[in-house]
Design a protein around this nucleic acid. Structure first.
Lengths: 257, 257
DNA sequence: CGCCTGGTTGAGAATCATCAACATCTGTGG
DNA sequence: CCACAGATGTTGATGATTCTCAACCAGGCG
């Protein structure tokens, strides 16, 4: 059971003494997120088998890494609470934010191909995650068709989402991009039975800009403009969607079709 | 109407397009592409099982669809010859090219999630493809760990590639985007043991622009500029990479950091 | 209290889109 | 085989969105 690896800086590989000390009672069956997370397609017995390979550690602090680019790939992760930012660094040292992950969402799948993580992931706030060792997961999904199928679907979803994002970056204005991101975050809150209208953005303006292919300044201006138009309420990271329809219109492109 | 080729015609070795693609008894075992395609990770016996579920139809003509957006998802496809364009249509009717697929490459995986294709795919030229019915494929990969693993990797690769593309669109100039695309196509030719320096682009300038988030005019100008700089030879769709290093420099960003 | 990070706002600059004209290619039918 | 028409590609002039540079403000923390 000694999987601790000295060369790895990830928190997961140096928490042996704290694992299971507080969280042993959390499992997939009693997890509020099971209906939108990996267990989604499984029956009780299957969930139990999945649960047995999942590792839960103590919460990550803001800024802690789940994994780093080029590190050996071992696991995929499901966010349990908090939020996580995925990003990668180009050859010439620029950062590109590749996604934001909220509770119930799975990340790390881009590392499967090369057995090394193609991106890094760090907590945007205090967060906890479930680690799913991929070797064991592969074996398990060999035995559970439902699990295999669901994971295929999960990866497919990620592909489709990324392509949606390509569209964003390729065709949309700054206004449209920001509006779309806010609507996406709103929808993900709704999925978790949280307020779709009022929420706190866990990421910085810089991260938003980076993700959307815009500068901080532009993002800030868009927020201000939306507020002035009465579509949004903006108080630093607190966001209120005052006029959802209006925001949707902005996302579609201001001009009438 | 004689074509007066005023610009460096010597760099071109016209690529012959007359390869016979209607082999009658094509199978994965005798396919030239098996080492870079789905069979990659399988042994002879396993390839045979895979081969048995693959359907091969007569070649597609230029413009023919493999599948259309929103159509029910049944299969993924591997390109055997020719080339394919993936694209989707937004709510407001705009087209977004999501990828170009060359022999040995697999497409259609974005349809798995919702059981409906999230994009369309059409042949850019006369092409043949292998159709892989996904139900059977799922069952088979249930029995063949190697196949499951390889397909996980394939999807992961697609995710990583899309995220790479996000970076492109988000951070790079027109020059960098075009340079990167050309280098990508070049590398994929090399993988198939074809000339990495001289090839024919199967897609239109419009498609390139659409894919890269640029207008046709911009793409055209970049091509002209690269030619003027002695990096490329451009004769309509025939491309000669005259100075690969130079092109790589353009892809990285012209300015030194 | 002052520093530092993160956010906002303004003015000017740059890249790329748009509009427009023209050139070239393709393929179809005479 | 040629002629023509529509599609595709090229080039130029102009303009808009967004970036860059810069100043300033606000909040958190030593």
């Amino acid at each position: 059971m000694n999987r601790e690896v000295a060369h790895s800086p990830s928190v997961f590989h140096k928490t042996s003494m704290t694992r299971c000390s507080h969280d042993f009672h959390v499992n997939c069956n009693n997890c509020r997120l099971s209906s939108i997370c990996l267990p989604l397609a499984l029956d009780i017995n299957e969930i139990d088998q999945l649960d047995r390979i999942i590792q839960r550690s103590r919460p990550l602090q803001k800024g802690d890494h789940l994994y780093r680019q080029d590190e050996e790939f071992r696991s995929v992760y499901a966010v349990r609470s908090g939020s996580v930012k995925g990003y990668s660094i180009t050859d010439n040292g620029q950062e590109q934010v590749t996604g934001f992950y909220f509770p119930g969402e799975v990340l790390g799948m881009d590392g499967i191909a090369k057995n090394h993580h193609a991106s890094s992931a760090r907590a945007l706030e205090t967060s906890s995650v479930c680690e799913i060792p991929f070797d064991q997961f592969g074996e398990l999904s060999q035995r559970l068709p439902n699990l295999q199928r669901h994971f295929f679907q999960l990866m497919s979803q990620e592909i489709a989402a990324d392509q949606q994002m390509l569209m964003q970056l390729s065709k949309n204005t700054a206004d449209q991009r920001v509006a779309t991101l806010l609507l996406s975050i709103s929808a993900r809150h709704r999925r978790r039975k949280l307020s779709a209208a009022n929420f706190r953005l866990p990421m910085s303006r810089t991260d938003i800009g980076n993700y959307l292919g815009l500068t901080v300044e532009t993002v800030s201006r868009v927020f201000s403009r939306f507020q002035k138009l009465g579509v949004l309420g903006v108080d630093n990271k607190e966001i209120a969607i005052v006029d959802p329809e209006g925001l949707q219109t902005m996302a579609n492109g201001t001009d009438i079709n």
